[in-house]
């Protein structure tokens, strides 16, 4: 009986000790910051288009990190973006909801300067300040800064903005993935 009690005492003491160490460690070495948001934000395409229903890429990143948003809400990021997010977060790839998005080629907005009335509404809508102009002055878009978010389209009272696909030029042309004939044959 005394052996039993000794064993019990030793085990209890051990348990208390280890529990204390673990408890201390979990308080002492708590991981503070949440760099996850930054990592997610780095994957997002920064179009700031709000198609994810969040007011920008970072809020969406925060929502994903907080478990409030799914990873498949960013159409500009494409499936590639979802894949990267899935990999980062260690979750399964999840395709876009059916009919939720249409894949669009990368485009930039273009203002028809003969129609523009200089209302500045698009300037206020642009999330990256890529439109220059002033009241009663013609506006124009800095194409190199335009993310193609289309947020400037709805506010324009005269519909003078349209999206122009960015074509391939010699400067951004890419060598395509080589096709090895033998791989193409499949039973």
């Amino acid at each position: 009986m005394s052996g039993f009690l000794t064993a019990l005492a030793i085990m209890a003491a051990l348990a208390i000790l280890l529990g204390a160490i673990l408890g201390f460690a979990s308080v002492r070495f708590r991981v503070e910051a949440d760099p996850l948001v930054d990592k997610i934000d780095a994957i997002l395409p920064q179009t700031q288009c709000g198609q994810c229903s969040f007011p920008g890429c970072r809020p969406y990143a925060e929502a994903i990190a907080g478990g409030e948003a799914d990873i498949n809400q960013c159409p500009p990021g494409g499936e590639d973006g979802i894949r990267k997010l899935a990999e980062l977060l260690g979750v399964d790839f999840k395709p876009f909801d059916e009919g939720a998005i249409e894949v669009k080629p990368k485009s930039v907005a273009l203002i028809d300067e003969t129609t523009c009335i200089g209302c500045t509404l698009c300037i206020q809508a642009c999330p990256v300040d890529a439109i220059v102009g002033a009241a009663k002055q013609m506006h124009t878009i800095i194409a190199s800064e335009c993310t193609g978010c289309e947020l400037c389209l709805p506010p324009c009272p005269v519909d003078c903005i349209q999206m122009v696909p960015v074509g391939t030029t010699v400067a951004n042309w890419k060598w395509s993935y080589p096709v090895i004939p033998i791989k193409a044959v499949k039973a």
Binding site: D41, P45, Q46, Q48, C57, V128
Partner: peptide, 8 residues
Amino acid sequence: ADRARMRH
């Protein structure tokens, strides 16, 4: 993207 993020 970095530029867009900065500008935003």
